[in-house]
Design a protein around this nucleic acid. Structure first.
Lengths: 343, 343
DNA sequence: TTTAGCACTCTCGGCTTGAGAGTGCTAAAT
DNA sequence: ATTTAGCACTCTCAAGCCGAGAGTGCTAAA
């Protein structure tokens, strides 16, 4: 299907208008609001055509037109390349990142917060995560009796801490020594490498080694890192969600880590770092997302550590703005991650 | 104000009924539903009295009665002592905790999840936090160039990790040595104690000491630990929130950490561990909470480490059930925390 | 090809109306 | 002195009706 320039213009204007009135838009409205040189009748004819090819829809005979999901997709398709963020917005955002604490967790929270505020919608950010767990460093800290705090650092910077309970109390001295020994033996090894050490250590070392291995497989198995959400309430203030049930279902997906991981896994599979995915109205697959759209991106270092960020808002969200924000924040995070965390 | 037993009964029944119909309840209804031995006229007379003392309210002349906030308070007051959780529910919950990973973070997430599911409302859990930061252990892990990962453990078990950037690159060997030295020097010291070490160390040690101090004051300043939320969407499915704005405002408070910390600080001040606070309809102070109630509890070790947990639901929530759940989960957490984290 | 004009359709808010729910009062019954 | 039956009264709510307004599609002229 190919559209004339005029048809594209009209489609764009209708979407644009609908996005911030949340109302069906009529022929007269756009002629007047945008000072078109043609008459409303002409617009009406074009609108009829656009309705035929299912880019527009009329809720009822005598209402204006509303974009269909296909319409939004067309619109977004034309949009996804260009669209930059205003320089001062970029500056504000960058500034916030560089004056926050130099800490990956802070950055991720900040990213979630920036996305939520800029887009006035719900945002999600997953911590960078690598598919392959490679050992970097281990610490053991005695707490009380047999309880020991284990801190495991992976190449790339993922950190897990966990309280473990040993078979018998071990003094801090000895723990440090074991940690040191293991740190050296395991450095830059993956799970296979480390499991080869089994049986070569004293009993306590062996005990810890097993816990270590269990933890590392756990990390490899999980599909994403920690998930940060923000701005759920923003979505609720959109007029189309005053009958809250539609919004509830969508937000519920965000709240349920397993569902969200699924969604991200299946969506981001074929998206590389720097790329943007726009999911409009659930794309026929995700029933619960029928009334919302998702703008998603990957960030990080393609081969090693990646995470996802995204925004969930009403279908009639300001895509240009949202896409550029998401893309920009993804880039900022990519930079920060590769600066700080790389081996 | 003192009520006759019959009045109490009627009040209780009305609240009970209203809680699961979400409708005003009339005299005839309760006589029939609860097989009362008196007639509806009698009930009506009593209802008139209860309305006079503002425990009940009628939305309009010819509707049934609805409890006022005061009414709920009276009801909850009679309730707060007793109310135990069914044994099998207790078992289910305990079971979940003991089969989860032995990790404070997991426990807190689990607590949030249990509360949200059991009460079908929104839950909040703050990580245990002590007002006084006491040093336990320090680790420094080289990552790349001047970037160093610092892991700080406090007595009580709070852990902070942070990437720091030193003036010049330092090899892991030396970092370990510094960490060791500092760990010994600072053991069980508070901020004052540690600041006395200033100037007695080599330049790198000094640099790290300062970051350490900054971090510790940051911890002391913050009012709560990490906050975990869950089940926000549960609240949205309540009928009174189909006009979503009321719910939005309340959920917004949960989403905004500063507001929530405020709320917790001012509410929990005079609640000791094991105690329960029930905030009904914002108690006149919290405008945004007018339409909701909060059931809050403290857990942890009174003198050292405490955190808060709570449930936010519609005013007409099943208080008995919610209170016992919150109390039970608080106790479980207290046990786990004191078992694991104590010095 | 575009546009003016017009008849037509459909929604939406306002209004009315009747049914139903629930009350409060009064007078009789216990 | 309570309790209860009876009844008139009040108010909401859903349904139906109406007219205004918005917007369309078609036709015929420019």
């Amino acid at each position: 299907m190919h559209l004339s320039d005029r048809q594209k213009l009209i489609l764009t204007l209708i979407i644009h208008e609908h996005i911030h009135t949340a109302q069906p838009v009529g022929s007269k409205t756009i002629v007047e609001k945008y000072d078109l040189t043609m008459s409303s009748a002409t617009v009406r004819n074009e609108m009829a055509v656009l309705t035929d090819v299912e880019l527009l829809r009329q809720p009822h005979t005598s209402a204006g037109r509303v974009p269909t999901e296909e319409g939004y997709r067309f619109f977004v398709g034309n949009l996804i390349q260009k669209s930059g963020l205003p320089t001062n917005t970029r500056r504000t955002i960058t500034h916030q990142f560089y004056q926050s604490r130099q800490d990956i967790e802070q950055w991720l929270k900040l990213a979630a917060s920036v996305l939520a505020n800029q887009s006035q919608a719900a945002s999600l950010v997953t911590a960078p995560h690598s598919e392959k767990a490679i050992f970097k460093h281990l610490e053991l800290i005695a707490t009380r009796g047999r309880q020991v705090l284990m801190v495991l650092v992976l190449v790339g910077g993922e950190i897990r801490q966990q309280f473990i309970s040993l078979a018998e109390p071990v003094p801090q001295e000895q723990l440090s020594q074991i940690a040191n020994q293991l740190s050296h033996l395991c450095l830059r090894q993956d799970i296979q490498g480390i499991s080869r050490l089994q049986g070569q250590l004293d009993p306590i070392g062996q005990e810890i080694l097993e816990i270590l291995l269990a933890e590392m497989s756990l990390i490899e198995e999980s599909a994403t890192g920690e998930i940060y959400l923000e701005g759920m309430t923003n979505v609720l203030s959109e007029p189309e969600f005053s009958e809250s049930d539609e919004a509830r279902q969508a937000l519920h997906i965000l709240e349920e880590p397993s569902m969200l991981e699924n969604l991200l896994a299946s969506t981001m599979m074929n998206t590389d770092v720097g790329g943007i995915q726009v999911l409009i109205g659930g794309e026929g697959t995700w029933e619960e997302l029928r009334q919302v759209s998702l703008v998603l991106a990957r960030y990080g270092d393609p081969k090693t550590l990646t995470g996802s960020i995204g925004v969930l808002g009403p279908i009639r969200m300001p895509y240009d703005r949202t896409i550029s924000t998401v893309r920009f924040v993804a880039n900022v995070l990519s930079d920060l991650v590769s600066e700080t965390l790389a081996v």
